[in-house]
Design a protein around this nucleic acid. Sequence first.
DNA 1: TTTTCAATGTGATAAATATCACCTTTCAAA
DNA 2: TTTGAAAGGTGATATTTATCACATTGAAAA
Lengths: 210, 210
Amino acid sequence: MLSKEELIKLFPDWEKGLYDAVAEHAELRTAKAGSILLKKGQNIKSTMLVVEGTVKLFQENEEGSEYFMYHLNPGEACAVTLVCNYHLEQSQVLAKAVTDISYLAIPIEFMDKWLNEYKSWHYFVIRTYRNRYEELLKTIHETAFKNMDERLEFYIKRQVQQFGNTIKLTHQEIANDLNTSREVISRLLKKMENNGWIALSRNSFDWIKK
Amino acid sequence: MLSKEELIKLFPDWEKGLYDAVAEHAELRTAKAGSILLKKGQNIKSTMLVVEGTVKLFQENEEGSEYFMYHLNPGEACAVTLVCNYHLEQSQVLAKAVTDISYLAIPIEFMDKWLNEYKSWHYFVIRTYRNRYEELLKTIHETAFKNMDERLEFYIKRQVQQFGNTIKLTHQEIANDLNTSREVISRLLKKMENNGWIALSRNSFDWIKK
DNA sequence: TTTTCAATGTGATAAATATCACCTTTCAAA
DNA sequence: TTTGAAAGGTGATATTTATCACATTGAAAA
């Protein structure tokens, strides 16, 4: 388990008692880069609080296609798993580890209890939902109004913000995240290179623009 | 202001004190069908709880195009306006009255206070966010994975669920909601009519299928 | 070094959607 | 009853994106 100091650093707004409760009931788990943390349709058994690394959240369809929605970083939580005790529903999203990660898994039994007992947990849940909701709005905005070239630019900028100017993704991976085909991404990236926005290389490229 | 009985009917899970607080501080307002309740970029001054009628929530882009996300019904609240005191941000969404409506407007000063004072308000906020988040996920799913014919079908089914089998919308209005053009909608509706799914008439059509 | 395979490049073509032009229909107001 | 405006129909064409086919490249493994 994490030390109290580490918990405070990750979740600075919590009450004292909540740190103790987490320390007592949460399990610190790790997962390898690329591993699936939550599948669409899967029953939710525990809440996930990211400690280290980055998680990617997707919408998933019947055929198994994925559509990237947003990232989760240390100190952030998966919104869908936070209040699932109300509904006892299955996950509507797919969550994957981008990097090797560690996270706190809290059995959902505690969710209702903690909402009652810890005001700071309540605020944390609301803040989480609000932030994820806003990310979703951005994603909808891009998807609904923009063509693929602009969506790709938005996607790359999100990556840059997360991981810096070097994007370590294959064209195929980007195509999967944007629910398009590899050829489309290759051609658009080539165009960006011609415009001097990026520098292409194998398995990665660099964002240069601005 | 609404009577306590009316409030209880709309918001059955609240605490006694919360009904009193709402009765004291909320203002009961009305708006005509079609009127804009909240614009993108507008500063949020009050929270909106729907009392009567239906509200439509949109994503809006720079050129003023609208993209329909979901409906709000009596007893439901606009998520974006619920926790804005944290951020003091501007609205990311557009809200329009579909029918003549009445709603409770609560100055946002009370939001933080009530979160502290009323557990049932806290739960109400979380439930609101969770429900809106789920609606957004559905909208993303349709937008990201489906072609226009399937998106139109999904859209019509949402309308049917809201207002019954007669859809009182022009092709242009539907096209606006789905961010496409009138011609595309006209042709797809014609195809649906040929398939026996709908019966077209001027200014409206009926959903027949199943 | 050579081999091999994933990653990428690219032309050709198909499919979906957008846009333009112009026509017909319907209904309400004059 | 006439008429003008809004709603809807539809062909032609442009644009965007998807799909197919196959060539090239580069890096890791043999």
